[in-house]
């Protein structure tokens, strides 16, 4: 489930990645792996702690950016990096009036690392759009560093 590809794309000042997945679940997992691969060597992260996440947002793109920023916050707060990401459920079709329209639940695993390569201040909404492809979906994410 963590095999979906991501690649760095050129950005003059910050870091950006393009991520793809066969579905939203794979896309979100790839985005998280891509982001943490900018920060650490994922193979060096010991699987010491498991956290459960439950997030809601007004649409799929906001959910994607919130998911990444949630992980950045938890990483700084707990002094760990994450290397395993399992979206256990994701629903972007909820339409209950007055409620968030999208929701994800996830289990993430991480641990202490010797050194983070850099700081990511935030995942941004710059030109954010989840594009549906024949083979799944794709998004580009710009990080402020």
């Amino acid at each position: 489930m963590n095999e979906a590809p991501f690649e760095e794309i050129e950005h003059t000042a910050d870091w950006a990645i393009r991520v793809r997945g066969r579905d939203l679940r794979a896309l979100f997992e790839a985005a998280a792996r891509g982001m943490f691969s900018l920060l650490v060597d994922l193979a060096q992260v010991a699987p010491e702690r498991t956290l459960e996440l439950d997030l809601r947002a007004i649409d799929a793109e906001t959910l994607l950016v919130d998911w990444l920023n949630e992980l950045l916050y938890l990483s700084e707060d707990k002094g760990i990096a994450f290397s395993e990401f399992d979206i256990t459920s994701i629903d972007t079709s909820m339409t209950a009036p007055g409620l968030a329209e999208s929701r994800l639940q996830a289990t993430v695993v991480g641990g202490r690392v010797h050194e983070l390569r850099r700081t990511i201040k935030a995942a941004t909404f710059n030109a954010i759009a989840i594009r549906r492809l024949d083979s799944g979906c794709e998004a580009e994410i710009v990080f402020d560093v």
Binding site: I58, N126, A127
Partner: peptide
């Protein structure tokens, strides 16, 4: 900034503000 850029995604809908970039 993270908090307000996220919560304002709903705010622009509320006030009918159209954006060329969601950031």
């Amino acid at each position: 900034c993270t908090d307000y850029v996220s919560s304002f995604q709903a705010t622009v809908r509320k006030y009918g503000i159209r954006l060329a970039d969601r950031e």
